[in-house]
Structures are given as C-alpha cells and as structure tokens.
Design a binder for these strands. Sequence first.
RNA 1: CCGGAUGUGGUGAAAUUGGUAGACACGUCAGACUUAGGAUCUGAUGCCGCAAGGUGUGGGGGUUCGAGUCCCUCCAUCCGGACCA
Length: 934
Amino acid sequence: MEYNFRSIEKKWQQTWKESGVYKVSNESSKPKFYVLDMFPYPSGAGLHVGHPLGYIASDIFARFKRLKGYNVLHPMGYDAFGLPAEQYAIDHGVHPAVSTEANIANFRQQLDNIGFCFDWDREVRTCEPSYYKWTQWIFLELFHAYFDHTDQKAKPISFLEEEFEKFGSTSVNGKRSPVSFTAQEWKAYDEKTRMDILMNFRLAYCGYGEVNWCEALGTVLANDEVVNGVSERGGHPVVKKKLRQWYLRITEYADRLLEGLEQIDFSDAMKEMQSNWIGKSSGAEIQFDIETPSGEKLPLVVYTTRPDTIFGVDFMVVAPELDLVQKITTADQKKEVDEYLAYVKSRSERERMAEKKITGVFTGAYAINPFDGRKIPVWASEYVLAGYGTGAIMAVPCGDQRDFLFAKHFNIPITNIIGEHYNGEEANPTKEAKLENSGFLNGMPMREALEKVIGEVEKKGIGRRKVNFKMRDAAFSRQRYWGEPFPIRWIDGTAYPLPADQLPLLLPEVDKYSPGPEGEGPLSNIPEWTALQLETNTMPGYAGSSWYFLRYMDPHNENEFCSRKASDYWGQVDLYIGGTEHAVGHLLYSRMWTKVLYDLGHIGHDEPYKKLVNQGMIQGSSRFVYRVRGTNQFVSAGLKDQYETDTLHVDVNMVDGFELNIEAFRKWRNGEYKDAELIGEDGTISSPHTTNNEGQSVKYLCGAEVEKMSKSKFNTVNPDDLVQRYGADTFRMYEMFLGPVEISKPWDTKGIEGVHRFLKKFWRLFATEEKGWIVNEKAPTDAELKVLHKTIRKIGDDTERFSFNTAVSAFMIATNELADLDCHKKAILEPLVILLTPYAPHICEEIWHLLGNSGTVLDASFPVFEEKYVKESTKDYPVAINGKTRTEMTLALDASPQEVEALVLANEVVQKWLEGKAPKKVIFVKGKMVNVVV
RNA sequence: CCGGAUGUGGUGAAAUUGGUAGACACGUCAGACUUAGGAUCUGAUGCCGCAAGGUGUGGGGGUUCGAGUCCCUCCAUCCGGACCA
C-alpha cells in the first residue's frame, strides 16, 4: 500500500462534494464560530502560490474549530464588480459579465484543487442582481438616514424632517445647520426645496466637490485609491477636478471608528494605519482681524493645535486657493500675488508633492494679534492646504519646522517664546517649555497655557475649541459601467430615490464602454436609461464588499439583506483573514456600514470583525540570465562582470535553485533561445550545435532577486502544478511550514520535498508497500503515550495561537519519534490523525476510513490532553521536580531524596560562592544549577 | 521627515513567563542498499580550531547570578503615511 495522494485526494474531494459535509446550518446547539477570508477579485491571471496562503490558514482554523465542537461558518465568494473586467471589455470586446464568469470558474477550479472546506451553497457574487439588489437597498438606507450629533448615531431622516417641522433649522441635530430656516418656512417649502436641504444631512449624499479625477481611467477615485498622485491601479496621473459626485458621510463616524478600534483585535500596525487615516487632532479655531485695502475689517480664522504659542506668531499663511487672498491683497502686492497664484495653478498635485520647494507671496495685508495687538504679515503659500482646517494657519517659526523654514527663506524675524528650548538652528515643537515673551502666559508651562488660551479665546468670542479630522467624506460614484447602478432618478436637478420595491435596478446592456459627455458614465449613452432620468454613475468597487460578510449568513433570503435572526446567530466575524492592502479602504468602509446598519436596528453588533489577521505577502524570487550585449551568448552569473551584459528575466520554473535547466531554456517561448550559446560557471560552453554529451555538464547559474510576484517577471509559481506533483496536503502544509502566516517572504519551492517526505513517512506508520496495513490493537506504552499527549498539547496550543509553522514541525517530530519506537498502534495513531486533519485533510480522511470509521473525521472529537502522560521522568532529568524540566527549589525540610541530593550538592557550591551564607532558592535546568536567590 | 514592524547559521526558521540559542526542514558532506538514482535509509553540519578550547542572536552600552528576549543608543531592511498646522 503506497501513499497514492492523487487518487486519495480526488476520491475525497468528490465524496465531500456529494455528501455535503461542509454544509453549515443556521440551526445548531453548538456554539458558533465565523471564519472569513477577504473574498477575491476574480482576475484573469488566476491564482499564484501567494493567494491561497490566507485561505489555507483560515481553512485550518475552521476545521480545527469544527473538531473542537463549534458550528463553523466558513464561506467564500467573489468581489466581482470592478475596473479590470471593464478595461478587459474595452480592449477585447468581451462583456464583463462573460469574462468575470469565466474567471470565477477558473478560480473555483483552482480553489477546489487545494481541498478547502468552504460551504459553497453560501457563495456570493457582488455582480449578481440577487446580491446587488441589497447593496442598492443599503444605499437607500444610507440615503434615508442622517447622523444625529446629540445621540451620536444614525437615524431615519424622517426624524429630522419632524424636527424641521417643529423647530426649523435652529438647534436641531446638535450641530449648526449649513442652511437656516424657520419651522414656518420649512412648511412652506415645496418638495424639491426640502429634498435639496435634506441632501446636506444624508449619509449617502450628492454634492459638488474636488475629486481625484483620473483621465486615463475616465473616472474619479477615492482617496485610498490614489497613491503618490497616481492611480493605484495602472499608475495613471490623477488631477483634482470639481464634479458632481456621490459621497458617503463617513466623517460623521470618525470618532466612533476611532473608538471602535479599542474593542477589536487588530494588529497595532493596522490600528495605527486606520487612526492615521482618520487623523484626529484637537485644538482651536481662532479669529484674527485683517484690515483690507479698502479699510474694512475682515476676519481670518485659523485652525491650530497649539493655541499656547499664540504670542509666537510671526506671520499668517493662507492657502492660495482661498478667495480671501484676492480680497486682502494690497494694490502694490497685486502683481506679485497674481503671478504666484498662476504659478500654483500650473503645478500638478504630483509636482507639488515631489519637489518640496519653499514658495509663497506676501499679500501686503496685516492681521492683528488679538492678545497683544501686534501687526502680523499675511502670506499666501501652497504649503497650506485649502482642504484642511480653515485653509489658513498662524505660523510659529520657533515651534514648527515648516514655519521656521518659511521664515528663514523669506527673512521674516522670528520671535522666541520657548527660551533655551529654541536654538535658532531649527524649530522645537516641544510642549514642555515654560513660555517667555508671551504676555499674560509668561512663565506658564505650555500644557497649562494651551487650556488657558482656549478659555480666553472663547471668553473674547473670537474662537472655540475644535477637533479636526484628516479623513474626508468618501467619494462613492464612478463614471464606469461595471458596478451597481444607483437607485436614483434626477428630476429637475434634484435626486429622488427609487422605492425599495423596485429593486434591483438592473444594470443594462451597453454597446460601448466609453464615458459620456462631461465625465458621465457609459450609462449616459443609453437612451432608454437617460429617458428614465436615472443616475448614470455607478457605485465603486467597495460598495459590494462593505457588507458581504452579512450576506453569507443568509445568502438566499429574497426578502431581506440578511434576517435579524441569522445575523444575531452568527454575529461578528470571529476571525477575518486578509492582506494589509485594505487597511484604510475596505476595512474602514465596512466598519462604517456595519455601524449604520446597527444604528438603524438592522443588526445587533456595531463592529463587523472581532479579530483580524493579516497574512504576509508571498513575494516572487526572480531569476535572471545575462546576455552578452549584441550577441546570442549567455554568461553564467559568476562571470557576468567580465562582459557587458543585458539582464533578462527567465521563468523560475526552469531553474533548479540557481541552476538553469538549459534544455528547458532552449525550448522556452517557442524556441526563442534555441540557438543560444551558454557559458557555464566554469567557462565551459554549451552550444546547440555541439553534441549533447558534453553539453550536459555545463552548469549555468542564474542571478536572483526578490520582487513582487507577477507574470511579467516570470516568477509566478502556479499552485496547480505543485498540487499535481506533490498533492494538495503537501502543498497546504508546505505553505504553512514556510513561516508565520503574518510574515512576508519570497516563495521558494525547494523545501516542499521535506513536507512531502513527512506525509509519506506518516503514511508508513499505517501501511507499507511490502507489509500492507500494519496498524494493530496493542496497548500503548508510556513512551508512546508521552509522544501522543505532548503532541496533542502542542498542536492544540499552536493552532489556537495561529502558529501553524511550529505545529507542522511538531507533527514531523511526533512522526519521527513514533517511527523510532516502531509504533503502529491504533490507540496512538487514531488521535494523531484527528490532530492532523485540519492541516492535511485528504490523507487523514482516507486513514480515518481505513481505520474502520465512517462519516467524516471532522465530526470526530478532538483528543483530550492528559498531563499525567507527559510528566518528565526523573530518569531523564535527575533534579527535575513537579514534572517540569525547569523549576525553583527552596530549601525545604520535606524535600524528596533526589531533591535533597541535588540541593546538598548545590548548597555546597553556593555556600562556598556566597562565603557561608545559605541560599533561599536554587534554580536548576536539567541538572545544572542556573539560579540562586539569596 | 513622521509612524509601525523586523534584524538569529549557506537558506526558511524555532526558542509560552528572562533560564542548555539554532528545534523542525531545506541545502551541503559522508555512508548504506542499489545496474542506476533526482527513490529510500543512516550519520555529520553555527563559526574559528587537528584538538583541548574559544566564540556566537545587526553594532555599542546598561539592568541581572543569568539577556535573542527587558532598558538606552546607533545602524540596516521592509511596510504605511507624508506639506494635516
């Protein structure tokens, strides 16, 4: 009986599918556990070895929890709307629905190969009408809701309408209204006016705003989709553009998104990224007065986190985009200011970020410091952003480095308010100094002064305490085709929602995917669509993924997005696994949607994920050959410096370690290199024209580098090939054996043999080729029981704490030990099979049945660890006590003979060492004294 | 520039609370069985040294009987944010 992994895996995958062992019920007496993977975007490239890493980890955990007696929800689906499918459609004329369907089929095939325990009956696809019907429905919920500041939660917008009817716009919603009207006026308004006013409050709203416009993609992008001034996908330039857009009022949830981080188990890095993105800062808004050229007084409101430094203000800076700049500019500065504004306008966002030049212009105007009446010059400069705070700052050069450099550059005198803390060389943003040159604040510690100034400012009525956030409302519309249509009609410039019973609003067929006029989506080219006055934008990629974890709980419900019963049963995702790349996108949006649905009473929890684990990225390990320039000669890596060479990527699959498979190389890419002449590491030459017997000894070594895994770099490794060669169980265990799940590392196929050997060895505990099935019913010995229970404890602990690599090692050790003991006893091996099941499900299921069991091993009970078997014997460790290899011993009177012997010995040594004093405690490690406490 | 993480053999990596550093595996070397081996098995393998021995967890310093682990500092790599007042 050989370990025939191919037939075993095929057989069990088939059986599992037919018998539906992975079907999960919402009715169970067992405790629930929800293990979720970030669902994939089904790209045309298929899976490479990096993708399944997280899936394997979650699969192991799901199976482990099921063995531990939980009712485990472990679903999978596809994030199927998105840009690439549409780009593919534009390039190849294939409808996105068709290419997406094909990609999904391919993904599914690849996933099935690896033997996951997903409940495929619960599969979701965000592009299916039965799914996006509910995405649209939730959008309408957002549209019909506002954020109540008094209660800090979302409420139906009808509440707000009632308030307007009773009180008008004054003092409702716990926050100033952007428009003001009385109750009478509200009652007199027509519906259109009311709708337009309400738009200022809706959680999903439409407005004009500066957006990230990507010309090449023909759409706007959310802030997290723009990286260094170019689009995340494709790397196209992005410019600011004013457009009508839909937004999510996520800023209202800034505080709760921040606070929520404290209750959830995310890595520090992830929490840090989210809170940086939210970017909360507290300070004050302070009003300075400016005298304009015409003599009138204009207020200049600045935002500062350091009101305590107000006596150190040496100049003010206003963002060039602000209209105020024109108003305050004096006649003799007008020319310079206009030139500067033109210059700023000519610079792209990207240039601005790339080159950090200090630029700016004096407006000629002066502001008055409200506390000492000093005249402060007002400048305009692009280092102040129009979009943050009030778009204007008070500059304190001795405390802020940017202000300092600006002052130095333009020769503005610097006031020192922090005494010796300021050295004249650079700014010092300390909060520890005692203030000087600061009027009534002199001698006061800065922290104290901060509160004092805010108090004074509020007393004077020239400002107030203010909290600011970096996070902006999320742009929620795309000028694209392949996304959810908005259930919105535009009548006379006002947006009206479609009634919920008309959902889903189906995505119509189009002939061409090019955008319509003035940055409208392809839907604007369909007469039937525009005739109905329907919104021509579609929702962004993150719409469908913001709530999919809820749909898995109740995937076939036609009446609700998810029944309250189902969401109450499954509750939060207990374990969520995915990459870090979604830190500020998906994870933030889905947290917001969850909070809204919670506020509106649709679900019972306000954080979607209890624990998040980020799997590391698997990088590619690229291989290179060196072609001598202008020839068809390739030189081995060690000799490349002797020639002038070009470096070319070669397919890693043709390289064994670093040694190139010359024959494969000649056949590669339809024989493109069939005539190549290769110079080996020792200088021998392999030429296609010489006879083969010499040519085979040429050893050609490739260069190597770690890069992102991608097809164009020929460094992708397809899991299908490895599964075909070694089996799914080997592949799964090897991916785990590679190292901690959270760590990024380059892929290296070399070590997979070791894991494969382990499985073969494991199999040989049960059956061999010569002797057949060799499991017996004999009673286990102490030594064998020790191996078993040691392993039960180790595997249980390691799996629970996500240390899968050490768990795999523990299996190898146990197998080696049992092989040494020549143990083939059912009493030992059967529990071991259960332990191994999450890691290598196919082989374990096979053995489980060969052992005479029925059903699936997943329904077996997890073996119980018994400490008595793993007690260290005194023989192994002469002075070990209480079953531990390491312990502390006090000089007690009731010590055992061995203890006394050891202690007497130790005491003599210690007494000598301590010059006669007796030790209180002696600590041993395996018979060696390592610690003495006196 | 700011924030986070990580630095251990030729390689991937172990080392629950400070307690024999390098488990386990790859690779390499030697051997066994073989017509043959890219199958299987056995042994060796941090570095220097014939050896005894010395030395060793990025560098330097500190706490401790004892530090990969804790503290300070410097360096390197990776990730994220970067004019956020």
